[in-house]
């Protein structure tokens, strides 16, 4: 096995064994971080790999979460597999429709227009009764994971949820790694590097971007479904612009376009937040300062720091 897989596998082992500590609060916190990590990975497909800085990715996250909430009857459980598939599909369709409009713009306009569309989604859930308005909606009974009468796990048990989310994170990570090595993924990298040249070579750039936008939306929907299933509650804050900014920060902090960057970013940002909010009421100030420092001294994010350390330890850089 190549040596570069060692550190990630060790980290995975650590995370897999962590629930044995019995620290329920931290098990739930880590579950939340891993959900955000899936969300951040989906955004990095756009930001890091296609060069599309979306500032409205929370819309699809929220749509995934609300799909589960709306599918869950008041006093019964929604089926896990069907509602999960539907959450991914609905989020992907929303991204497809929005993508048709927003992908006509670029640069700062793209950032602004994705934000504007996300705000529309926000106000649909905030100002109408579809999802319980600004109060949100409970998932009274957690989804039912049974397949053909066999129930592999129980969403009422935090440790079960932890391992489901961990498994999803690993699957999404492996899936995206595979996509990025595929012809489709190589085309996305080409588009990020030089869109004009890709068009001159005959690539229908718009269609590729739309496919990436749709795929990223679907995966964000998956993360949203997991959030609703874990917390048992959805409200419009899930699709607010804070959330879009938060996940974008995770990607940038961790290192856009690096395999583990978005995951590292999700852990770093959430743990910094936890750390400062237990220490001081002015946690936002300290969080802001640390973000500025990280971005200032590690312009490529944490992912690039890892690469640099590895290069100086083992010699020779390995680039994507």
């Amino acid at each position: 096995m190549p040596r570069r897989h060692l550190a990630p596998l060790a980290a995975l082992l650590l995370v897999a064994l962590f629930p044995l500590s019995g620290a329920t609060f931290y098990v739930e916190l880590t579950t939340k971080i891993m959900i955000m990590a899936i969300f951040a990975l989906s955004l990095d497909l756009l930001v890091g790999w296609t060069g599309l800085v979306s500032f409205g990715h929370a819309a699809y996250f929220g749509v995934g979460a609300y799909t589960l909430a709306l599918l869950s009857p008041k006093a019964a459980a929604a089926g896990m597999w069907s509602s999960l598939a539907l959450a991914i599909a609905v989020a992907a369709v929303c991204a497809l429709v929005v993508g048709i409009f927003v992908l006509r713009t670029r640069g700062i306009y793209f950032i602004m227009v994705t934000l504007a569309f996300a705000q529309m989604f926000y106000f649909v859930f905030h100002d109408t009764d579809v999802g319980g308005g600004s109060d949100g909606r409970y998932v009274n009974v957690k989804p039912d994971a049974s397949i053909l009468g066999f129930t592999p796990f129980d969403f009422d048990r935090p440790v079960h949820v932890y391992y489901v989310v961990l498994a999803m994170l690993v699957l999404v990570f492996l899936f995206l790694q595979r996509v990025l090595r595929s012809p489709f993924g190589r085309a996305l990298s080409g588009i990020r590097a030089n869109e004009q040249r890709m068009r001159a070579l005959g690539f229908p750039v718009m269609a590729y971007k739309l496919a990436a936008f749709t795929l990223a939306g679907g995966l964000a929907g998956l993360a949203g479904w997991l959030l609703a299933a874990q917390s048992g509650f959805v409200n419009p804050e899930i699709l607010s612009w804070h959330q879009s900014g938060n996940v974008l920060l995770m990607v940038i902090l961790g290192g856009a376009g690096t395999p583990y960057g978005p995951i590292a970013g999700a852990f770093a940002l959430t743990l910094l937040h936890e750390l400062f909010s237990t220490l001081t009421t002015h946690w936002q100030l300290w969080l802001g300062i640390s973000i500025v420092l990280i971005v200032l001294f590690m312009p490529g994010g944490l992912g690039h720091l890892v690469r640099r350390v590895r290069a100086s330890l083992f010699g020779g850089g390995r680039d994507v």
Partner: peptide, 8 residues
């Protein structure tokens, strides 16, 4: 060119 499963 649209394949997502194979190694380019």
């Amino acid at each position: 060119s649209w394949a997502i499963g194979s190694d380019a």
